[in-house]
Write a protein that binds this DNA or RNA. Sequence first.
DNA 1: TAATTACATTGCAATATTACGATATATTAT
DNA 2: ATAATATATCGTAATATTGCAATGTAATTA
Lengths: 109, 109
Amino acid sequence: MGVTRTDLFTEKQNELAKIAKVFAHPARIAILEYLIQSDTCINGDLVQELGLAQATISQHLRELKETGLIKGSIEGVSVCYCIDPIRWTEVQHLFQELFGGFPKISGCC
Amino acid sequence: MGVTRTDLFTEKQNELAKIAKVFAHPARIAILEYLIQSDTCINGDLVQELGLAQATISQHLRELKETGLIKGSIEGVSVCYCIDPIRWTEVQHLFQELFGGFPKISGCC
DNA sequence: TAATTACATTGCAATATTACGATATATTAT
DNA sequence: ATAATATATCGTAATATTGCAATGTAATTA
């Protein structure tokens, strides 16, 4: 008990839930917004920008990387993180698909 | 330690994260999809549809209710749950706003 | 080479989430 | 009123997440 029963749901449902989980933390939202808005995209700036410890931000970045929403490239001593446009659009479409399903013709309530 | 530092982020960032958290579980995705697709919307059907215990589903429904995405009306002995169209659109726009922000003109990476 | 800088990883404590049995509540049927 | 039915809530065990200090790693500079 206490472990999500992914076996009960479709692969797509599990996938969307997993992606949503990445958006389910204000720090990760803030990181994404920063990467979208900023001209520069150096990891160190994020530590300055958000008030969290470097280790914590690194952890959030890893989760964003794992979902493929961002990608990092080594830029000398530092690392440049950016939104991955392909994946970004892909994820956008997944959410659009869910939201677009409603309303339906059937008027139950 | 262990508690999200909401004080570091904007109200909007915290709000979006909170909403995303509701989508961050396959059971809740499945419930929403069921409510969108089904002609009927009786709670009991959900217990049949998903393989989770009644208590567990009731808990997920509460979280969906708390974000305002669904609303329930008592229908005799049972309860009819439905998507709240107003809130649904509102949440849809919040996500669209985030996704629409990218790409920007600035080409950093 | 040694020191510095930037970021990642590890380990751990605090807290949150998930699932479900048991039980409470509320409506309908007998 | 009593029983039956449907859903909500409580309590709790298992697991996951969050945050950070400490430490590891890799490139850069002195």
